[in-house]
Nucleic acid binder design. Structure first.
Lengths: 242, 242
DNA sequence: AAATCCAACTTGTACGTACAAGTTTGTGGT
DNA sequence: ACCACAAACTTGTACGTACAAGTTGGATTT
């Protein structure tokens, strides 16, 4: 929002329009020359904006064809659930509420160090369980500092995408992440939510998300049952098309 | 090496020189104007090469200062071991040989699908255990298709970096990766190599590395004891300097 | 000796031109 | 109806100019 340069203004405008489905996933952006004419910019400037959208994973450029919308959010190579052969069908994923959003003090044994600002603000907490074909696979606890996020507790519904809600409601975008991963044995809380036997090996992931609003970080801890579905991701340049 | 365009030639040359310590980590590359003059190129073309080096994590550009060498290999946000507070001191990591490099057929229960080319070539296998302060934390099994990698079995030493060896010996660079992650219970093999009790929860990671040589992929499976040290990584844009 | 300031660097932004190379589409001939 | 080819797109590469903005270091001043 503080962007003053021409290519950043265009970059933000296009990103906003991709998010608002003006250009849905799979569609083609106006050609570089069209964008030049519409915004009265040189082609280099337009290409600079498109280049940023490309490196952040929003579009793919194809010579002779155009700029194809690829994703509605920056691809950060996050771990996500995969079946062993094919990706899990999104329609088969359901969400169960464990803890509706509520104000609370920060937990004592928090896995990341908090700034004074975050400590003072207190946190909003919610927890949910994700299931694939009725099988609980992930127990997720999320902690958000209570910093200028009005109406969050009332408006956020657990069955929607957390990141898309933040983007739409607060223009908050995740710009980076750090995480730590362990293998742990299931305790009584996990056996309850994930329907596994005690001491079942679980994947534990603690994440700190960085956002475009400085000093505002989001935190979450995941417990995953990987007996049936593994967590997977890809990173780097993929060989696209032929 | 098939790069024909001017900016790609410069990109490859600079990358090679960074790898060869002509420009060590922390040093500053020649200024854009110097590179222009030396290679008889326009500044746009030079900037295109530097831009690619920057997005791949080799350099960081700083306005008014120059292009600072940051890393000797593409940053792929791989998971690596961290202590809970600070990163583990590299001098405290030791490598134990479990299986010296040897030719063998591909395992029956291989976690990734292999191409006919890879199947026919057979594989080179080696295994090692990484220890932090004498404590074994990772048991790593690596499988490489026996495709035009002369002298690998004889020359590769288990206590050196696999990727740096491939880059130096074969100009092979890792361009991407896909991985799957599970939490599993330790079996007898793991208890032996990682010195843990049976059924201890372990992190299991199966990776397929993509390289700049098409159709040549590398495979490895890791078993990690996360009782003392977690696996961690960061991704996305980090707030650098001030 | 210390502080100030300015000149000489550096990269960043923005404009322009020209042509190469890949894709799509439609025209025209068979 | 089909095929071949060309025209009209698209993005990619490469050159050039000009000025803005951040950094550094030396000359000048205090």
């Amino acid at each position: 929002m503080e962007s003053s340069t021409q290519y950043q203004l265009l970059y933000h405008r296009l990103k906003k329009e991709i998010l608002a489905d003006v250009y849905p996933i799979g569609s083609i952006l106006p050609s570089e020359n069209d964008l030049c004419a519409a915004a009265s910019l040189s082609r280099s400037t337009v290409r600079q904006a498109l280049s940023q959208l490309e490196t952040e994973g929003y579009i793919i450029k194809q010579k002779g064809k155009g700029s194809i919308v690829k994703s509605k959010s920056r691809s950060l190579n996050l771990l996500s659930f995969h079946g062993f052969s094919a990706m899990v069908d999104k329609t088969k994923i359901s969400t169960l509420s464990v803890q509706e959003p509520t104000f609370m003090p920060w937990p004592e044994d928090f896995p990341f160090e908090l700034s004074e600002l975050e400590k003072g603000a207190g946190c909003i907490h919610f927890a949910r369980v994700r299931a694939v074909e009725r099988l609980p696979v992930m127990y997720e606890l999320t902690f958000v500092p209570n910093l200028n996020l009005p109406r969050f507790v009332r408006q956020f519904k657990l069955n929607q995408s957390f990141f898309e809600f933040l983007a739409k409601e607060y223009q908050l975008e995740i710009t980076g992440m750090e995480q730590q991963i362990w293998a742990v044995a299931a305790n009584s809380t996990h056996t309850q939510h994930l329907q596994v036997e005690s001491n079942t090996p679980l994947l534990k992931i603690s994440r700190k998300y960085h956002s475009n609003r400085s000093h505002l970080n989001l935190y979450s801890t995941l417990y995953c049952n990987t007996e049936k579905y593994a967590l997977g991701n890809t990173s780097g340049v993929l060989n696209q098309s032929l």
